[in-house]
Amino acid sequence: MTFVAHGASHADSADAAIALPPSPPAWKWLGSRIATFCLAEIQRIRHDRTELLTRAIQPALWLLIFGETFDRLHAIPTGHIDYLDFLTPGILAQSGMFVAVFYGIQVIWERDAGVLAKLLVTPTPRAALVTGKAFAASIRAFSQVIVILVLARILGVHFTANPLLLVAAALAVVLGSAFFATLSLTIAGLAMTRERLMGIGQAITMPLFFASNALYPVALMPPWIRAFSVINPLSYEVNALRRLLLGTPGNLLIDFSVLLFALVLGVTVAAAILPRLVR
């Protein structure tokens, strides 16, 4: 048995030149890191499913109480579709965002436990680490989305059964959640403590949610909130989900481009800030 790298022996080889293992190409390590962190997240979920169920309660209540009530009130004009149908994509996006916005807490725990330092000492570029973590957060968000979609179907929400459109909708949720996870990682790098991150997370989730088209059409908003909704990635995620699941008019190219751009920007900023956590 040996712990020493192939091509290298022990002290007697001190003068030998070191044969470094070849580094894989960038696309390969990025894919590998995303897969590694997503797999770890799936394993964590598999070992403890209670969090999935408890986290699904809040979005379920939005659909059951808020959705059902406003569906009967007809207080929000949603064109030719029922309010509950209109609301479902909004709640899908919102539940993903809520999971992702607090993902930084896990990273702060990893900092406290020394796990983050160990991850940063692996040959993983900071951007790949952040991207992997962001997609891992979206795995957790995505698993909740499945619960909500099942509930929505039980409540009689009419959405597509086309598997391709469902896959595209899943992609929108994953991209949106990954962006909000990078936002959370950035806040974690700035806030440094769980308590501050919780406070900031709570302070930003409601404005992001209410200043989006998740609950009502943008046309109903006052102009200043409408202006904010234009730069709110959640609105584009909801637009994409409505287009894909309900077939409402929209421009998927713009929606996905904005989500992708937001994610790249989020990864860039978070990768620059994250190492602060271990200094």
Binding site: S23, A40, A113, V115, V121, T122
Partner: peptide
């Protein structure tokens, strides 16, 4: 980093 194994001060398993 490829040449180094690192164990930090904290008990750092997940």
């Amino acid at each position: 980093r490829r040449l180094v194994g690192y164990v930090p001060q904290q008990l750092s398993a997940d």
